[in-house]
């Protein structure tokens, strides 16, 4: 399956990535190869095989509703580029 430049632009927008024209062509080529690789799976006969979300033979893994310690505010903001009043400071959203 071949990806168009338009497909790459769409995915880039959804991922908030700014790509140059050269990058768009490069990614269109590379992603097409990945898609072709995955397409090989379509050759398998999967009749009667249950769809699985993941390979773990586990189910109903719960935790109890118990409050545990959170991080300190300083630790939470340790990797923030900018912060103010205990909050992450980000470019204006609205």
């Amino acid at each position: 399956m071949a990806l168009s430049i338009g497909d790459v632009e769409h995915v880039a927008l959804l991922s908030r990535l700014a790509l140059t024209d050269g990058e768009k062509e490069k990614f269109a080529r590379e992603l097409s190869k990945i898609f072709s690789h995955v397409d090989q799976l379509a050759e398998l006969n999967v009749e009667g095989v249950e769809p699985t979300a993941h390979p773990l033979p586990m189910k109903n893994v719960f935790r109890q509703d118990v409050v545990l310690d959170s991080l300190s505010n300083e630790a939470v903001l340790a990797n923030a580029a900018e912060s103010e009043d205990g909050c992450f400071k980000v470019p204006q959203i609205v």
């Binding site: 545990l68 959170s70 991080l71 300190s72 505010n73 205990g86 909050c87």
Partner: peptide, 9 residues
């Protein structure tokens, strides 16, 4: 609660 005090990884 004060901002970002009920937060973990």
């Amino acid at each position: 609660a004060p901002p970002n005090t009920q937060v973990c990884p």
